[in-house]
Amino acid sequence: MTEVTLTKKDFTSDQEVKWCPGCGDYSILSTVQSYLPELGVPRENVVFISGIGCSSRFPYYLDTYGMHSIHGRAPTIASGLAISRPDLSIFVITGDGDSLSIGGNHLIHALRRNVNIKILLFNNRIYGLTKGQYSPTSEQGKVTKSTPLGSLDTPFNPVSLAIGAEASFVARSIDSDRKHLTEVLRAASAHKGSALIEIYQNCPIFNDGAFDTVKDNETKDGALLKMVHGEPIKSATHGLVHAGSSLKLVELGSVAESELVVHDVHNPDPSYAFALSRFSNSKLDHVPVGIFRDVERAEYGSQVNGQISDIIAAQGAGDLETLLTSGDTWDVA
């Protein structure tokens, strides 16, 4: 194969970007455009498929193949494409409303099947495109246009949901942290099967400052529990220790450094990653970021195509005439 040497510019389309000034989507777009040359896949083999919502405009801004589909259904279209075209690198761009409300069913089923698609879930905890209603990740009590007295719904924790749906790769990153997001994208691309990356994304118009705790220089070091494979999980002030079958948050210094949980992204037990996911709450005072889980599991598309190649290897390719004349036939002279 010939060496592919592409640059960020090669992946940037000629379309004018039309998100609101200050939107977190800009930095995510820039990070993804910068990362794609490193993916090492020819442009024509990269496909971005989105649903509906502000983030779902994403494919227009990348000079790859792309489809801006309908609300919530991007994982279904991406699944059909990934299964029938295993040669492609497919990304799904979605938001918290798109993937967790109207498209919740498709998200969990794509994850349990482990189809080879990389899902970037832009979580801004609000409906932006429809101008400011609460979303399935909005904190309870959220006052919005549709909830003047505060929202009543208990929010989803997208990472917990994905782990519950048997996801083989789950991670969380932040829109403004280009380096961290790039690392996560790199690991997700190397993973065979579905990957869900939750990206905290600021909506400056309808939910501005939602993630300030994990972004402001003054607070972020205390809030971010950094998960790095093979290293203790800790923030500047806190760390995690084992507590029976679960995990517990402790102040650094209250236990020996050696007591801290050493992160293992390949831990086959999903309850470990699930326990980690429970530390992120609506208040965002302690938020694990990084890769929660990265385990090997058979990829769906290769299994589907494997069944076909196995039967052809065993019985030969199908013959149409034989098929049509199968069963009980008779001749009329």
Binding site: R73, I77, G80, L81, I83, N105
Partner: peptide
Amino acid sequence: EDEIAAIGAALGAAYG
């Protein structure tokens, strides 16, 4: 998983 996903996947395959 449902009727919508069924046609979505078929359309995705057609796109490919």
